[in-house]
Amino acid sequence: MQITTTYGTFKIIQLVSDKDELLMVSKWDSLVRIFESKRVFRLNQDDTSFGVYLCKQECAEILNHLIKTLDYKEWENFHSAPKERFFSTNNLA
């Protein structure tokens, strides 16, 4: 999932190895506005992406806070998309 707020743009990824653990990825400045800097780590030496591991409950609390600061510019694209793309009546069986 990707979410854009006034704090920055965040990607939330569920780990394959542990279904109860999530990884929140963003830029350093965005993550340290929410978390302590000692929790934030660099994902790749060549990249400017950083991450924080979260449990699902902590992620839910953070998302609740971030949803209050959503950037609604992206909603224009969502509402202008054709309805068939989101609601299909075709059966796959």
Rank of each mutant, 00 (worst) to 15 (best):
L43G: 07
V25I: 12
V40D: 03
T48N: 15
F86E: 02
L70C: 05
T6V: 05
V52E: 01
D71P: 01
L43K: 08
C59K: 12
E21K: 12
I3D: 02
Y53N: 06
S88F: 00
Q2V: 14
T6F: 06
Y53R: 13
S26M: 08
F35Y: 15
V52S: 02
Q14A: 07
F41K: 15
M24H: 05
F78K: 06
L31T: 10
K83E: 11
D29H: 06
Y53K: 14
Q14H: 04
I62Q: 04
D20H: 07
K68G: 08
N77M: 05
F10R: 01
S26H: 08
D47F: 05
E58D: 13
S30H: 02
N91K: 14
F50W: 14
F10W: 01
T9G: 08
R39Q: 14
A60L: 08
W28F: 13
R85F: 11
N44Y: 00
C59L: 12
D29K: 13
M1H: 10
P82V: 04
V16C: 05
K38E: 15
H79T: 10
K83V: 12
M24W: 06
M1Q: 10
V52Y: 01
P82L: 03
D18E: 09
M24P: 03
R39L: 15
W28Q: 07
A60I: 02
T69M: 06
W75E: 04
Y72E: 02
K83A: 11
C59V: 05
Y72C: 01
M1F: 08
T89H: 12
A93Q: 14
L22H: 06
W28E: 09
E36F: 08
L70K: 09
T9N: 11
K73I: 07
E76G: 01
M1W: 04
S17D: 11
S80I: 10
D47H: 09
S88N: 12
T89F: 12
R85E: 09
W75I: 09
F50H: 15
A60Y: 01
T6H: 10
E36S: 15
Q14E: 08
I67Y: 10
Y7P: 00
K38P: 01
F41E: 14
K83P: 01
T48M: 09
L23H: 02
K27G: 08
N77V: 03
R39E: 15
N90T: 12
D20V: 01
H65I: 04
R39N: 11
K11R: 13
F50E: 03
E74G: 05
V25F: 00
L22D: 00
Q45A: 08
N77L: 07
P82C: 03
S37G: 04
L23R: 09
G51C: 03
T69I: 01
Q57P: 02
S30C: 05
M1T: 11
D47I: 03
R39C: 04
E84P: 00
Q45P: 05
Y7S: 07
I67C: 10
C55K: 09
S80K: 13
T89D: 13
E21L: 12
S26T: 07
V32I: 15
R33D: 11
P82N: 09
E36G: 11
K83R: 12
N64G: 10
W28H: 13
